[in-house]
């Protein structure tokens, strides 16, 4: 129960943070497009909870606010970067698609779909070469699953025996194109298995399953194997905030609410209030920072 409460606490903070970013975007504070991660929190938090910021490195896609936070990046610095402020992770040079916090194990996010995957192989190679016990972890979506860079890296990781995790977050849609249309054989676990990876399916709606799969898969990767997880998650917030192309159906379930329903209600309310207050405070602090000018 303690692990589930911890999962909920972090996931609720990320959700509150993303919703606050959305409101800030509506108010004109986000220079570019904000790709929010609402719906993927449980899977992401559960996996990052198994990682260590000093030995492991995570790379993510354009939708990586939550991953940076889950690895422990300072929320004020993350928000300030999204706002293009001095005091952001990179003093506003990178922005929402280029969050970089290797000091806590979040190596980089990426604006090129799938390009973050070879970079995580590099982190895995460093861990292997230095015998640090660390792993490289690449998060990517079902859109990126069809990129050559991902195929090549799956083969390379197996051939070179890299301690690496490939985390496919399957939300069923790449921008506005259904993955069922774009993917020849939609059995992506079979695809990964064919490359020789050890494969796991993760139910991103089920907190207990997320925790269990994450724990086993990360341990296997740490032993020096290339591991693949397909995490089934919803995309609750559109391709980017404000996008109206493809919205989740009204019947789409919210993993956070499902987890909340399994926890004592008094506890949940307190956690949620903490998360909302914490996110508001971080966003306000970031908005108080000056616009980056050099």
């Amino acid at each position: 129960m303690q692990q589930l409460e911890q999962l909920y606490t972090q996931a609720a903070f990320i959700r509150a943070f993303e919703l606050a970013i959305g409101r800030a975007a509506d108010a004109g504070h986000v220079p570019g497009l904000a790709h929010l991660c609402c719906g993927a929190e449980l899977a992401e938090v559960a996996i990052c909870a198994e990682l260590c910021g000093s030995t492991d490195q995570v790379t993510g896609s354009h939708r990586s606010h939550g991953l940076a936070l889950a690895m422990g990046a300072d929320p004020i610095a993350v928000a300030a970067e999204i706002f293009g402020r001095s005091g952001g992770l990179s003093d506003g040079r990178g922005g929402t698609q280029h969050l970089i916090a290797p000091e806590v194990g979040f190596l980089t996010s990426n604006g090129i779909v799938g390009a973050q995957v070879p970079l995580a192989a590099g982190a895995a190679l460093t861990a292997k070469t230095k015998d640090s016990g660390g792993v490289g972890v690449a998060f990517f979506g079902d859109g990126a699953a069809n990129q050559g860079a991902v195929f090549e890296t799956m083969n390379l990781a197996v051939a070179l025996k890299l301690p690496m995790l490939f985390i496919l977050e399957n939300n069923g849609v790449g921008q506005t194109t259904a993955s069922g249309y774009a993917t020849g054989n939609t059995d992506l676990l079979a695809r990964a298995a064919a490359f020789g990876l050890k494969t796991y399916k993760m139910d991103g709606y089920n907190g207990v399953n997320c925790i269990n799969v994450a724990s086993e898969a990360v341990a296997v990767a740490r032993m020096g194997a290339a591991v693949f997880i397909e995490a089934v998650v919803p995309r609750l917030s559109g391709h980017y905030h404000g996008e109206t192309g493809v919205s989740p159906s009204e019947s789409e379930r919210d993993p956070l609410q499902i987890l909340a329903a399994s926890l004592p209600s008094g506890v949940v309310e307190a956690f949620k209030k903490n998360a909302d207050d914490g996110a508001e405070t971080a966003i306000a602090a970031a908005l108080a920072m000056p616009e980056a000018r050099q």
Partner: peptide
């Protein structure tokens, strides 16, 4: 790409 990631992480 692996080399880029390795350079970013200490090799």
């Amino acid at each position: 790409g692996m080399a880029v990631g390795a350079a970013m992480t200490g090799l």
